[in-house]
Amino acid sequence: MTERSSKRVFSPHQAFKYAYHTIGRLPGGVFWLPVALGGISFLLISQPATWLTLTIAGLAMGLMIFLMASGLSLVFGLMDVLNFGHSAFISFGAFIAASILSWHAGWLQADSVLLNGAALFLALLGAVSFACIAGWFFETVIIKPVYKDHLRQILITMGALIVCEQLILVVWGGIPLTVPRPAFLQGSVLLGQVPIEVYRLFALLMGLVIYAGLYWLFNATRAGLLVRAGVENREMVEALGYRIDRLFLAVFIGGSALAALGGAIWAGYETMISPALGTEMMTLVFIVVIIGGPGSIQGTLLGALLVGLTGNYLGYLAPKMALATNMLLMLSVLLWRPNGLKPVAS
């Protein structure tokens, strides 16, 4: 018996299935995937300092993408709305934050963390406030007439995205905009012997704080309970006495605000943004939502982390593959789990 099992050889396909089922059975299940990815890349990269830099960059990128994609995921999952205009909020968030930061250039470079922080806070607040108003307008005027009609949703939201990009061109011009960073977020800190960009740590922290906030909102409040229920069965939520249309509007506004916040932090990360930012990010956020499972906040976080980490690791290991990485990741997940890695229970 022992001899027979020691001679057992797995084909690559069997090995993949075995690994999948093993991961699926572990406590935490698919949430071990980023850890497994980190472990495998550690072996392949074989330089701890490089691996740590790439991992922090991947996590920071993943959490920023999570901010941008979480709203889309909720809107898609709860309202069954394919909002291609979502990335317009990312763009507006980025450009509004960049402008506010530029107007407060003096504060940004002052030798006072308080002034630096105030400029940053105003930039983020400006981006989020604009997105709340624009989100209300977008849902009421553009989305509401096309509920339950996917084709019209795609056409009208794509059209809205193009209009928004043109608006950005009119207001900010076509030349890429430089985004100043507050002084306290410039430079690097040493983690052991490895220099890590402070801004990446800031992005990472912001992502974690927002995720914790969303987790609390969805698991410890009645509003969150309603959203989770609405994602599963809208009709039944109405039959229990709730106005799902009001819930839709609140979620849409919240999702738009998160996208703008993500865009604003992304702008500081990239330090240079162009009006095409929305279109560039659109594919990425849709991939993340599909990987995670529409409507699932935990799934969106998982998808975003996988996209961020894979992009950074493969960008180093096989740069020529970098462009195809996200599509390959999405294809693999769809073949493996067609409803996403962490779908909403049905």
Binding site: R222, L225, L226, R228, A229, V231, E232, N233, E235, M236, V237, E238, A239, L240, G241, Y242, R243, I244, V344, A345, S346
Partner: peptide
């Protein structure tokens, strides 16, 4: 929702439970 708030409850053929929510959360809603 207005009809429900008047005191009418509905138990659909497919049961309409929220699978991702616990028994307690389903009832709390």
């Amino acid at each position: 929702s207005e009809i429900a708030r008047m005191g009418v409850a509905y138990v659909p053929e497919n049961m309409g439970i929220f699978g991702g929510l616990t028994v307690e959360e389903n009832l709390r809603l």
